[in-house]
Design a protein around this nucleic acid. Sequence first.
DNA 1: TAGGCCATCTGGTCCT
DNA 2: AGGACCAGATGGCCTA
Length: 148
Amino acid sequence: MEGLGQDSMFINFVGDINVMAFPQKHAAGPKEQVATAPAFARNQTRINDSSWSRELQDGARAEPLGAQSLGVGSPRCCRSKRRRVITGVQRQAANVRERKRMFSLNEAFDELRRKVPTFAYEKRLSRIETLRLAIIYISFMTDLLEST
DNA sequence: TAGGCCATCTGGTCCT
DNA sequence: AGGACCAGATGGCCTA
């Protein structure tokens, strides 16, 4: 049967990608370091730092938006020095939004982990491992489709 | 103890 | 103006 052949191919594939380069890490499952919030406490003092919302440095002036149309990833040296002054309340609100954003990102990673075949280890894949494994898996399935 | 991974904060930039 | 996105910095936790 062709299905059997594909099954064995799949098993070999999963075996290969698991053997590839995944050391036995995270054997204890996802770690729980939420709620410790040391960084939060550490940085709280900066909210009230007088230099936190300081004016432009070295006399640098804000430029029109059109003059700063530099793509993401362009050298930091060439970017404008436009500084956006926000209050401590706004900073904390931005931090909350960022935490939520990262939380949803991690949810997406968890969902991707469930889609990617792994059975050789029970360890939790790291984010970079999940991405690389997904790339390999998609390539494998694409090749499989094209060969049938 | 070093290195990997991660959570969080932060400031810059983009976009609405 | 403000939210979303991004990348750098920092420090904690865990494993080899």
